[in-house]
Design a protein around this nucleic acid. Structure first.
Length: 348
DNA sequence: AAAACGGGGTC
DNA sequence: GACCCAGTTTT
């Protein structure tokens, strides 16, 4: 075993955090944890993992659920295609594979929602297959230890780091090694304020030697944030019913529920809202909308800022997509909508 | 190769 | 405000 792998594993055995998915090699649990932790911090994913295992102890239980139930439990975790792919894969494994997950990298890679990282993680942790994981932590640790400034989000960089990662892998113990380098990146070789003054790799770290730790890893192509303007129409009937509609199966918040939505190129006023014939299409032209929030609520996602206004309309009766406020919490909704419902119910 | 896809933590 | 997180899929 190479010297760096040896040090990482020694460090890991002493410093690893105790996590529920670290006490098992059950592919179902490892798979679930890996999907949940894609682009997600452990602290954020943990409560979701526990509630999923509680609700769906086996892949068969998850397979039997409705997609709405799965999305509801996923609510707030983001990247909802993960939840839909999770459910689809559970149904596939339960029904087509007799509940047995593929036991190798290539088989795992064919599952929906399982890419190179996740297939490597499951294959190594559950089956001891010598595949090196390459995630944000590994990019960071390797870029620093070897002082590599190739951009990690371009294909040339991915190839270079993938080669290096597989060379460094301890092929006799890929499960421990992979978790060790990720854990080391997560809690020691952190993005900001890495703990260089007390580091097991201090003698090996080329970036530290060159005082370049802060600059690594290099990532190019900053994402551009788009502004969008959402006007939600919230009908309220006398007996406390409202309307929720299901979003389309593609795009942001796919298959989640929301109030009827009118998008506009910029913020609009009441008169502009009434002029739009959308209200007519919705059959909600009986009464005048009342703006609920004086200032637009800015909901910030990584790639867009959503400027949101909620408009309340009193109506006599609701014909389509009727939802009672007493049952509204059963529907999976974006955090933006959940926040509104919470605030609205507090004040009414 | 680039864009789309969430929400929350940290500095 | 900018960056990042146990990335994958679609365009």
């Amino acid at each position: 075993m190479n010297e760096i792998a040896k040090k990482l594993i020694s460090w890991y055995l002493v410093n690893k955090r105790d996590m529920p998915w670290r006490n098992t090699t059950d592919p179902y649990k490892i798979w679930l944890s890996e999907i949940m932790l894609q682009q997600t911090r452990v602290a954020q994913g943990m409560p979701y993992y526990l509630s999923f295992i509680n609700a769906f102890p086996t892949v068969h239980d998850l397979a039997k659920a409705n997609e709405d139930e799965v999305l509801k439990l996923w609510q707030g975790l983001g990247y909802y295609s993960r939840a839909r792919n999770l459910h689809a894969t559970a149904k596939f494994v339960s029904r087509e594979l007799n509940g047995l997950f593929p036991n190798n990298y290539n088989g795992l890679l064919s599952l929906k929602g399982v890419g190179d990282y996740t297939a490597s993680a499951i294959a190594s942790i559950c089956f001891g297959e010598p595949k090196a994981v390459l995630d944000g932590n590994v990019f960071r640790v390797l870029s620093r230890v070897f002082n590599i400034d190739t951009p990690i989000n371009e294909s040339i960089g991915k190839k270079e780091f993938a080669l290096l990662a597989s060379e460094l892998l301890d092929k006799d113990n890929p499960a421990t090694y992979n978790q060790a380098i990720m854990e080391f990146g997560a809690i020691h070789c952190k993005p900001q304020s890495p703990l260089c003054n007390n580091c097991i790799l201090i003698d090996s770290c080329q970036a530290y030697k060159s005082n370049r730790v802060k600059e690594l890893p290099v990532k190019l192509k900053k994402i551009k944030i788009k502004k969008v303007y959402y006007n939600y129409i919230v009908p309220i009937s006398h007996n406390n019913d409202t309307v929720l509609v299901k979003r389309p199966p593609k795009g942001i918040w796919a298959n989640l529920f929301e109030f009827p939505l009118i998008e506009s190129p910029k913020e609009i006023t009441l008169s502009q809202l009434v002029l739009s014939d959308k209200l007519k299409q919705l059959g909600l032209e009986s009464n005048t909308p009342v703006l609920y929030n004086e200032n637009s609520i800015v909901h910030k996602l990584s790639h867009r800022h959503i400027y949101t206004k909620f408009w309340i309309i009193d109506v006599d009766e609701i014909s389509n997509n009727k939802v009672s406020f007493t049952e509204i919490e059963k529907y999976p909704v974006p955090v933006l909508i959940a926040n509104f419902i919470k605030d609205f119910c507090k004040n009414n």
